[in-house]
Each structure stands twice: as structure tokens, then as C-alpha cells.
């Protein structure tokens, strides 16, 4: 048994958790989420570089919430989403134990969000090299080129809403796209509506997205949608100095303001 499996078995045995959300092996060396409710099942649990999925998304599911005592295996992005979700009052009804594995391969167990916050702040991640490169490329394009790029990307969108389903911050029980009085966004997949959907998604996540990149990774047609929010977060940090998934108490740049906020474009 790995140290992780041992630790989780221990948590089951001493009654700290009654449900564990983690990763298990799948075909093609992929890691998929697994939900175990007994110490005997811990041998499924793995933690490899393939364990990318943001498991905090499951904390919004009613059937998971019923478990009451939840253990969750969290990579750094998941830890950030837990912090952000706490600041948005979404985890207050869940008794949770957060398990992570640090760079030294030690299994760490956090029994409260203050400790998670502290860990996140000490290990705050940067963007991946690949994302940095892509953002740089996009920013070095002319405006018209960027428009062309995104137009082509969005044209491919089939409005499957996988980007929404996989996002821990998209927890609204009914999304704006499902509002029909009025109908803000057309239900069918067509290009203007696709652009609107992605614009709206980016605006709703700007300053809240914790840059796990899952939306881009999951997109079946390969649109790098995560770059939109990634760029927004960079801009927000530059303009207002706030970071997402950084503090359990606050951190949303768009529900606060400073009288001295600077802009050059308002005449």
C-alpha cells in the first residue's frame, strides 16, 4: 500500500471520513475520478501526474453532499478551488478533510480551510509553460488575427457545455444559458451564440477562475477556452492586485472597487 492509501485507510478507520474522492487508473494510463466509501477499497487510489481532473467539482453534487464526511484528494488547482469556493460560501455545509501530496511526495492532511489556505499561499502555482507560450502568441497577434483565431475556434464549439460541467466555479443550479425569460443565449450551436456563450462564461469566471485548465483540457473539439479566463486573471491581478483561490475570506475583484481604480479609456 502507498502512503496515500495507508493514510486514507486510517481516515476511514478512525471515522474522519465516510467518502473519499480520489483518482484511479483507467485505460491508456489515464486517471479517472473514483469514489470510495470503505477502507477496503483504498487500493484503487493512485496519485500520478495524470491525476489532473479537478475533483472539487463533485462537491456540488447532491449525492456527494449527503455523505457528510468527505475526504478529497486535491492537487494544487483543486486546493485553490476549495479556497475560492469557501470564499463564495459554497462549502459551508460540508465536513471535509483535504488530502494533498506535496513536492516531497509527503501525504498532507488538512482538517480545516485555514491550513489549506496557508498551504496554497505558500505553494501558489504559476501558469504552465504551454499556457504562457499560447498567451504570449495570442497577445503578439494583431487584433484582427486574434478575432480570426477565436472566430475559428468558437465556430467549432458544439455547445456541449463540458467546459461548464467540469468547472468547479460553475456551480449555479441553473445557468444563464438556461434562462429563457428572457433568452440571453441561443440554445443551438451557432457561431454568434457560441461567441456569446464563451464571452459570458469568461466574464462570469474572470476573477473567480482558479486556472486549473480543466475546461480547455476537456473540450471535445479542442478549443483552448481556459486561455480566456487565464488572460482575464492576469489582467485582473495587474489592474486590481487580487488573486483567485488565494484567500478564503475575499478575493473577487468584481464585487469590490477602489475609488482610485485606474483606466485610460473612459472619456
Amino acid at each position: 500500500m502507498t502512503p496515500l492509501q495507508n493514510k486514507v485507510a486510517e481516515l476511514f478507520e478512525n471515522g474522519t471520513i465516510s467518502l473519499m474522492i480520489g483518482y484511479k487508473n483507467a485505460i491508456n494510463k489515464l486517471a479517472v475520478p473514483c469514489f470510495i466509501d470503505h477502507a477496503t477499497q483504498v487500493e484503487q487510489l493512485i496519485y500520478t501526474p495524470e491525476c489532473k481532473g479537478n475533483l472539487s467539482v463533485y462537491l456540488h453534487k447532491a449525492e456527494i453532499k449527503q455523505a457528510k464526511k468527505i475526504g478529497i484528494l486535491a492537487n494544487i488547482a483543486t486546493l485553490r478551488s476549495l479556497v475560492q469556493l469557501t470564499s463564495e460560501n459554497q462549502l459551508s455545509d460540508i465536513e471535509k478533510t483535504v488530502i494533498t501530496i506535496n513536492a516531497q511526495n509527503e501525504v498532507l492532511v488538512f482538517d480545516n480551510m485555514e491550513k489549506v489556505e496557508e498551504y496554497v499561499q505558500a505553494n501558489f502555482p504559476e501558469y504552465t509553460e504551454e499556457d504562457k507560450k499560447l498567451l504570449e502568441q495570442l497577445n503578439s497577434m494583431t487584433r484582427a488575427e486574434r478575432w480570426q483565431y477565436w472566430s475559428e475556434q468558437f465556430a467549432a464549439c458544439v455547445k456541449c457545455y463540458a467546459c461548464r460541467a467540469v468547472c468547479p466555479m460553475c456551480y449555479c443550479s441553473s445557468c444563464t444559458v438556461e434562462c429563457n425569460q428572457p433568452q440571453w443565449i441561443k440554445v443551438s450551436s451557432e457561431t454568434t451564440g457560441n461567441l456569446e456563450w464563451h464571452t459570458m462564461r469568461a466574464m462570469h469566471l474572470a476573477g473567480r477562475c482558479i486556472n486549473c485548465g480543466e475546461c480547455g483540457r476537456i473540450c471535445p473539439v479542442g478549443i483552448p477556452v481556459h486561455l480566456l479566463t487565464a488572460q482575464m486573471n492576469l489582467d485582473i491581478e495587474k489592474e486590481f492586485g487580487s488573486k483567485t483561490g488565494f484567500s478564503c475570506n475575499s478575493g473577487y475583484a468584481l464585487n469590490t472597487f477602489k475609488p482610485e481604480d485606474k483606466e485610460q479609456f473612459i472619456k
Binding site: 487584433r143 488572460q231 473612459i266
Partner: peptide, 26 residues
């Protein structure tokens, strides 16, 4: 003030998507 923050972010999003933000006068 809240609107101003919203426009700062919205405008930079539009710009990143290649939208011609000069079509909006704030």
C-alpha cells in the same frame, strides 16, 4: 465604481478575443 471595474475587465476580454473595442465609447 463597480461598473468601471466591470468595463475594465470586459474591455480587456473583448480585446483579447480580437473584438474592436473602439466601437464602444465609455
Amino acid at each position: 465604481f463597480h461598473a468601471r471595474r466591470r468595463w475594465i475587465v470586459f474591455r480587456s476580454l473583448l480585446d483579447f478575443m480580437g473584438f474592436d473595442t473602439d466601437r464602444i465609447t465609455f
